Computed example of a mutant assay.
Amino acid sequence: MEPNHVAYRKAIHSVTTLVAEYPAPEDLPVPSCPEWTVRDLVSHLVGISAFAIGRMSGWAEVERSSAGLPVDGLLEEWAKMGERLEQLLETHGGRRGSIMVMDAFTHELDLRYALGAPLPVDHPAYDRAFEIVLNGFSAEVAAHNLPAVLISVDGQEWRAGVGEPVATLSGDRYDIYRSLAGRRTHEQITRLGWSRDSHRWLPAFTWGPFTPPTQPVENLVTVA
Rank of each mutant, 00 (worst) to 15 (best):
R178I: 05
A204F: 04
Q188K: 05
E157Q: 15
E187R: 09
A143Q: 13
D172C: 05
L180M: 10
H186K: 11
H144E: 13
G155S: 12
I189F: 05
R200E: 15
S179K: 08
N135A: 10
S170I: 00
V133R: 05
A129D: 06
D154L: 11
A167E: 05
H199Y: 09
L146F: 11
T206M: 07
F137V: 07
Q156N: 12
L180K: 03
T168C: 08
G155T: 11
I189N: 11
H144W: 15
L134H: 12
F205H: 05
A167T: 07
A125C: 10
L192P: 07
G163T: 07
A160P: 03
G193I: 02
V153E: 06
P147E: 13
R200D: 14
L202T: 06
S138E: 06
Q156K: 15
R184G: 02
S152R: 11
E140K: 14
R128T: 15
G193V: 02
H186I: 02
A160F: 00
Y177E: 00
P209M: 09
F210A: 02
Q156G: 04
L134I: 02
N145A: 15
D127C: 03
T206I: 04
L150I: 00
L192Q: 13
G136K: 04
G208E: 03
R159H: 03
Y177T: 00
L146R: 10
H144M: 04
E157Y: 04
S138I: 10
E140Q: 14
Y177Q: 01
A167N: 03
F210D: 02
D172K: 10
S138P: 06
R196E: 12
P124F: 06
H199G: 14
F137L: 12
G163S: 08
S195M: 04
A181T: 07
S138L: 10
G193P: 04
F137I: 08
V166K: 12
E187W: 03
V133P: 05
L134E: 01
S195G: 09
P165N: 09
G182D: 04
S179A: 15
R173V: 09
H144L: 14
A139V: 01
A139G: 07
S152M: 02
Y174M: 04
F137T: 04
H186L: 09
F210E: 06
A125I: 08
R184D: 04
Q156D: 11
A143L: 15
R196L: 09
F137K: 01
E187G: 05
Q188D: 06
R178V: 09
T206S: 13
L146E: 09
A148E: 09
Q188G: 02
A142V: 12
G193R: 00
T185S: 09
W194R: 10
A204E: 07
Q188H: 04
A142Y: 08
G193K: 00
E187Q: 11
W207C: 06
S179R: 08
G208Y: 01
Y177P: 00
R196H: 08
A143R: 15
E187H: 07
